[in-house]
């Protein structure tokens, strides 16, 4: 039976956030080997913030992502290897290098209202003969009709598929369904969904997207990813099989990859704690989680307060520097409050 949607596993990209970008070549090989054998058609490998993301602001990679990419390409027998690139962080030269190493799918990500900064990079991907995917991050922040206009821009640049990306894990089932339905109705290219689990809705949102005919769905094995995690690939596949959606992936093999290979990397993955929930509740970019905890510790403030303030400020993906700004401000306010009591 052929699959009704194409699955992309992003454990080795979005999961990089959960491990503070410290994946090793051996870990990458083991994950790719397992996913490839289970029949996962696309595997994404990059720094969590995309190619060129290694930095003070997002965390330095433990191993150069090009080495990780080369290991993944070498290990995969059937799966295509994808990379993520955020214009403004990564540059065209990064994509050219990734393509030379063997990546064949380029996912170009912008904030949901800023699609026009992806033109150069989507065009380049097509010139290189890669599949190009547009990735509209923080899609919850703009209404379906406005999202459609941005998606149309990406389609006009040559995107083969445009994703509704719930970076903050803030979408309700209705939010996800309406966005996917609007794009499916009006785009000629494919439509994808990338869900996070901060409100415990990642699998449900993906199933709602499938009901609207979504063509591509993302997961991360065990949910390993930014914030409280992504749509867990093995759970998604099992739920799809039970709902009558053919996945083309062997569910029991995925369960083994999850338990034997990925879960040992972060045994607590899957827990939605207060900080994780705050991301979905306040609509804050998922990868801010660990940075907010570190800043909270350094400045002696509450990480939940940091996340809520970031939500109020309407910061977008990539603005990790504002975590420090907010932490310093909260620290100062606390000191002033204390001083006024003396």
């Amino acid at each position: 039976m052929s699959a009704v949607f194409r699955l992309t596993d992003s454990t080795l990209r979005d999961g990089s956030h959960a491990l503070s970008h410290q994946f090793t070549v051996d870990q990458v090989r083991a994950v790719v080997r397992g996913l490839d054998a289970a029949g996962v058609p696309v595997i994404e490998v990059s720094h969590g913030d995309g190619l060129g993301g290694s930095s003070f602001n997002y965390g330095f990679s433990g191993t150069d992502e090009m080495h990780l990419l080369a290991a993944a390409v070498d290990e995969a027998e059937h799966a295509k290897i994808a990379v993520l690139l955020l214009p403004g962080i990564g540059i065209k030269e990064d994509l050219i290098r990734a393509h030379a190493v063997g990546a064949t799918v380029a996912r170009i990500a912008t904030h949901c209202t800023e699609a026009d900064i992806s033109q150069q990079h989507i065009s380049l991907a097509k010139e290189l003969g890669m599949e190009a995917v547009g990735f509209l991050m923080m899609s919850h922040m703009t209404p379906p009709e406005a999202l459609l206009e941005e998606a149309k821009k990406m389609e006009s640049y040559g995107a083969d598929c445009v994703y509704v990306v719930d970076s903050a894990g803030a979408m309700t089932i209705d939010d996800a369904r309406r966005r996917v339905a609007t794009l499916k109705d009006r785009l000629t290219c494919q439509v994808g969904i990338h869900a996070h689990n901060n409100l415990s809705l990642a699998v449900a949102n993906s199933l709602a997207a499938l009901e609207e005919g979504v063509d591509q769905v993302d997961g991360c094995t065990t949910g390993l990813g930014a914030g409280a995690g992504n749509c867990p690939t093995e759970v998604l596949v099992a739920a799809c099989e039970r709902s009558g959606y053919q996945t083309g992936v062997e569910p029991m093999s995925l369960v083994d990859v999850a338990d034997d290979v990925v879960r040992p990397l972060k045994p607590t993955q899957g827990v939605i704690d207060g900080d994780g929930l705050m991301l979905g509740y306040a609509g804050v970019y998922g990868s801010f989680l660990l940075h907010a905890r570190r800043a909270a510790e350094r400045h002696g403030v509450d990480s939940k307060e940091i996340l809520l303030e970031l939500g109020r400020r309407q910061v977008v993906g990539g603005q990790e520097d504002m975590i420090i700004d907010v932490a310093v401000e909260l620290e100062r306010r606390a000191a002033e409050a204390q001083a006024s009591q003396l």
Binding site: S55, G88, H111, T113, E114, Q314, V316, G318, Q319
Partner: peptide, 13 residues
């Protein structure tokens, strides 16, 4: 290394 971000918040930041 330089990173550029566009933020659409209203009112503008």
């Amino acid at each position: 290394k330089a990173i550029m971000i566009l933020n659409p918040a209203e009112p503008p930041i």
